[in-house]
Simulated scan of single mutants.
Amino acid sequence: MSQFVSAVVVGADRLGNIPELLKGHNIAIRHHISGRDPSHQKKTLQLPSGTELLILLTDFLGHNVMKTFRAAAQRAGIRVLACRRSVCSMKQALNQCGYCEACDMPKIAEKEAKFMADNGRGHGRPRVRAA
């Protein structure tokens, strides 16, 4: 069984089908915050400990709330995923962010490993061989 990524979802009153979609991508919702409380606009907000991913539902959040949560995630070194509250938008954002469906390892790490194996090094441009 694979390890689930612990996520905090910010925005919207109800999540609908999003929790099931996230389970398919090995992401567990640890905490859901609606973002309506005025205290969410404070500059010194902290995310719950153990959070590995912050998901912002942009169509249900004000700019100040998003800015506060992004800053908190940046201070804690947590990845941020921003999308609208729809299953299609969430799927697209997850795939762009590197979380493929039912994988143990995100796609980004797989691409980096393949690049390093193909080129023999992990930095700079790929080696070009003269014919």
Score class of each variant (00 low, 15 high):
Ser2Trp: 11
Phe4Thr: 14
Val5Ser: 00
Ser6Tyr: 02
Ser6Phe: 02
Val8Arg: 01
Val8Cys: 05
Val8Asp: 00
Val8Ser: 02
Val10Asp: 04
Val10Thr: 08
Gly11Cys: 08
Ala12Glu: 05
Ala12Asn: 06
Asp13Tyr: 07
Asp13Ile: 10
Leu15Thr: 04
Gly16Ser: 06
Asn17Thr: 08
Asn17Leu: 11
Asn17Ile: 09
Glu20Lys: 10
Glu20Cys: 05
Leu21Lys: 03
His25Pro: 00
His25Gly: 01
Asn26Met: 10
Ile27Ser: 04
Ile27Glu: 02
Arg30Ser: 14
Arg30Leu: 14
His31Met: 14
His32Val: 07
His32Gly: 06
Ser34Met: 09
Ser34Glu: 09
Ser34Phe: 04
Arg36Gly: 15
Arg36Glu: 15
Asp37Glu: 13
Asp37Pro: 05
Ser39Lys: 05
Ser39Gly: 11
His40Gln: 13
His40Arg: 15
Lys42Arg: 15
Lys43Tyr: 07
Thr44Arg: 14
Leu45Asp: 02
Leu45Glu: 05
Leu47Met: 03
Leu47His: 02
Pro48Trp: 03
Pro48Phe: 04
Thr51Leu: 06
Glu52Asp: 14
Leu53His: 03
Leu54Phe: 08
Leu54Arg: 03
Leu54Ala: 07
Ile55Cys: 07
Leu56Val: 02
Leu57Gln: 03
Phe60Met: 09
Leu61Asn: 04
Leu61Thr: 03
Asn64Thr: 13
Lys67Met: 15
Lys67Pro: 07
Ala72His: 07
Ala73His: 04
Gln74Pro: 03
Ala76Glu: 11
Ala76Pro: 12
Ala76Ile: 12
Ile78Met: 02
Leu81Ile: 12
Ala82Arg: 10
Cys83Ser: 15
Arg84Asn: 12
Arg84Ser: 15
Arg84His: 12
Arg85Val: 06
Arg85Trp: 08
Arg85Ile: 12
Ser89Gln: 13
Met90Phe: 04
Lys91Val: 11
Lys91Ala: 07
Ala93Glu: 02
Ala93Val: 00
Leu94Trp: 01
Asn95Gly: 08
Gly98Cys: 00
Tyr99Arg: 01
Glu101Ser: 08
Glu101Met: 06
